[in-house]
Design a protein around this nucleic acid. Structure first.
Lengths: 356, 356
DNA sequence: CGTTAGCACTCTCACCCTAAGAGTGCTAAC
DNA sequence: GTTAGCACTCTTAGGGTGAGAGTGCTAACG
């Protein structure tokens, strides 16, 4: 009681931290509010339940724990989890066995970044028993690597755009009513474009197209197709995230806090809220290390029941993606942080190997 | 009572059908069991509730309706819905306004089958307020259209495979430790492959590769890359469905029958059960018209709470995909059938236009 | 002064009971 | 064949109760 207002924000003493930690770890496994008695029984705290009670009261006054009702035990607030993640929990590396298992899985799959980010999500889901999330690596400014035109009929062709960073874009090119072009002409057009646009960003490519002659039919067509390609690259550059692949959503559905399906509904509509995810991904990509977003810290109401543990992967300055885990706020942060850290590190290794 | 066992399977008289229909349509909108009184009040049946009751009892004896408990109203069984779909409901075409709206939406999007199937799912979801499903059109035996090799570094290249039917496949090609190849060589390899493989199915392509000379380095490499391409096409041919795109799952989550989240969980795990979906898609692709799968008719237990309304699209003998709707068994089948029919027809038009 | 035992107190949860309401099935009359 | 009437069944919501859990406070203790 005397203590209660003495340390509103400052660091907590070790015993208090130990008890906060015990409450969180107990709550994470049992999913039910934990009482003072349960704590002294299950954790070697060296004090009686009465003492624990007074410390619990203190933690509650500091806003790190709550009470569903008078006669219930304590459970962590979002601030409690935050304090735990920042100051208490030691980042425990993923067990060697699991590291090996994951490496093995990545070895099994086709060696291409295209597959990796999906596998990352799947792996994260199964190891953490939460939902795994991953986005493909995406550059800030993509470079055109190769342009290809495949005729479909006399007046249509498929434009295939290979980007330096690995992505492939496809679009349909339709000619004017009076034009009629065969595959050799398309090949000539593609050759012109490859010569001029290879290695270019959208803006530089646009500049290079300006020198094409309007009065020469093949060059004129090349210009039109090139403009289209530039537009596609621009759109790709502008998109915040292309795609968020998720796996293991069923794991989250099984958590008891989502027994009422309206909460579940919120989580799902949150996942469809690409805007917020894109924003998160952006901030994580910039930050460099594993980042944790807990419950209400997520601005959208839809997300208040879940936490996200995210980390970037890829090559800074080149292409960057994000992998991570989505789970109930009551999740094992230590495991999640360790696993996400390991997987993002592994992805870095692989990408490095690909471009070395 | 006398009537009860007289017509165990045969056609029902018109009045009985009208009452079955009324029960179903009432139940579809209210989601609560419907009693005899409610029926006479809301539908002009021309008889008293007592008469309705005896007919309801008859329908129940025939297995078309059930009773959750003694003092509750009736609701349709899966067999009831089936009878309704087969014999009672007239296929009502989608209202012209909505047809126009949908056509307009398809006009807005990039003209390419790649985008269409996603849009189909989205459209179906929003019009029927259920979940929309769609698969990309996939051929029975794909034909190689174009092969491309893009160097990543001295010992790796990206193999890009354009299939006649529109799909694009990508894979990484890694050379032996002692090899080192530049882009011009890759171009030569690609040229060889394009010349030999263009227009071929996997089996014919494999045959054509046999004639390449092992002692000539470029041809030997072409052979290895070509083998890889054949393998990829084989895998693509073998895959039952490549991908099922879904949209509007939230609509389904909102249905009152999924208030308990375990039912919801079942539906979601059902959607991850690609095997059954693949089988369904196969049977629908063969059938030609809109097909309905109701509740327990779906073999996997996971699917017993939902119905599927599916239709194929594409070009028979060329590439075929499936579009449709997934909703609670208590869904508006007439609307779903009309909408799915219209959308699949529209997709057919578009695909025809693309290949005409 | 921090720690502890003891205890009164509060609140939830599971249970039972009851009354109201909905809808049926049966019967007898039309 | 249809209908009105009625007894019957079953669900559901509401209120009351006792057990149990866990608290906060107080007074004693080292």
């Amino acid at each position: 009681m005397a203590r209660r207002n003495r340390r509103p924000l400052g660091p907590l003493d070790l015993r208090t931290q130990a008890i906060l930690r015990a409450v969180i770890e107990e709550y994470v496994t049992t999913a039910t509010p934990v009482g003072s008695q349960a704590l002294v029984e299950r954790y070697r705290l060296g004090v009686s339940s009465a003492t624990v009670r007074s410390i619990l009261a203190e933690l509650e006054a500091n806003g790190l724990l709550t009470h569903p009702h008078t006669s219930a035990g304590r459970l962590p607030t979002d601030a409690g989890y935050r304090f735990y993640v920042e100051s208490i929990v030691e980042t425990v590396p993923l067990p060697a066995v699991e590291q090996l298992m994951i490496r093995h899985q990545f070895g099994q799959v086709e060696f291409a970044s295209e597959h990796w980010f999906r596998l990352a999500a799947t792996t994260l889901a199964s190891v953490t028993r939460s939902a795994g999330l991953a986005t493909p690596a995406k550059p800030r400014d993509a470079h055109i690597r190769r342009v290809d035109l495949v005729a479909i009929n006399e007046r249509m062709a498929s434009l295939i755009l290979v980007l330096q960073e690995g992505a492939i874009k496809q679009a349909l090119v339709t000619l004017e009513a009076d034009e009629s072009v065969d595959q050799p002409t398309f090949n000539a057009v593609a050759a012109i474009l490859n010569e001029r646009l290879s290695g270019m960003t959208a803006t530089r490519a646009a500049a290079r197209l300006a020198s094409l002659r309007e009065d020469e039919p093949v060059e004129a067509l090349a210009r039109r197709v090139g403009d289209r390609a530039v537009k596609i690259v621009r759109e790709y550059d502008a998109a915040a995230i292309e795609e968020v692949f998720s796996d293991g959503l069923l794991n989250v559905m099984e958590a008891p806090e989502f027994a009422q399906s309206d909460k579940l509904r919120r989580v799902f509509s949150a996942l469809e809220n690409r805007a917020y995810l894109g924003q998160l991904v952006g901030s994580v990509a910039g930050a460099g290390r594993v980042q944790v977003f807990i419950g209400h810290e997520n601005q959208p109401l839809d997300m208040r029941d879940v936490s996200l543990v995210l980390a970037p992967y890829g090559r800074p300055g080149h292409a960057i993606g994000v992998v991570g885990v989505l789970g109930p706020t009551r999740m094992s942060y230590s495991q999640a942080i360790g696993t996400v850290g390991f997987v993002s590190g592994l992805m870095n290794e692989l990408v490095d190997h690909l471009y070395a």
